[in-house]
Design a protein around this nucleic acid. Sequence first.
DNA 1: ATGCCGTGGAAACCACGA
Length: 257
Amino acid sequence: MIIATYNINGVNGHLPVLLRWLEQTAPDVVCLQELKAPQEKFPEQAIKEVGYNAIWHGQKSWNGVAILARGMDIEEVGRGLAGDEEDVQSRYIEAMVNGIHISCLYLPNGNPAPGPKFDYKLNWFKRFSARAAELLASGKPVVLTGDYNVIPAELDVYKPERWVDDALFRPESREAFHNLIGQGWTDAIRKLYPTQTVYTFYDYFRNAYGRDAGLRIDHFLLTPDLTGRLLAAGVDREVRGWEKTSDHCPVWIQLAD
DNA sequence: ATGCCGTGGAAACCACGA
């Protein structure tokens, strides 16, 4: 079973790339972030025509998350994170698919830091970590995947010294990520590639993709039982080189059935 | 050192992203 995550950066603007990638690689489950579409403008029909059921939580202009499944039912568990009644941003959705709990997240960017956006990021992270602890305690197989907007370590950025004051790499963000891992989750990509650079995002400018000047910010966190089923993982790096593409690459894991 | 590019929405610029 292959589960993928892809920050599409505009599900309508980049729909041809999404459909082409779905048809070429046919992952079983796909988590999307940054739909940038209101609920009623999600391209449900086009996605259905390439074989996928979908649930989504849209929002006008920004954010937006979705879970897709090829030929399988998607049982929505919830949308939105508990802990802040005033948070109206569409950044989180959960579902059961094929016996696995899937959490799809788009963690706030947080720049500029310090400031209210950084505070929102850290608070969101705290709420997410509380939810993660609940899920871990449930004993179910769980995948927490999406755009975390966190560079976990120096190995995960082409020039760490340039990112020390950035919300993606500041100590508070890295600490929150490592504390989350410390609950008992496994970072699937880092587990399979313990010493290699693996990037999932490249800026549109400065020829970042051509220079391989990237970041690793899209992650898969797995419960222990799923870690035992982890067969392979990777980044569909070539998709970042397509015309009219997102600034993120699709990332995927393969689990034993 | 830097949104240099790109999307979406509104309005021929702005907010936002990482």
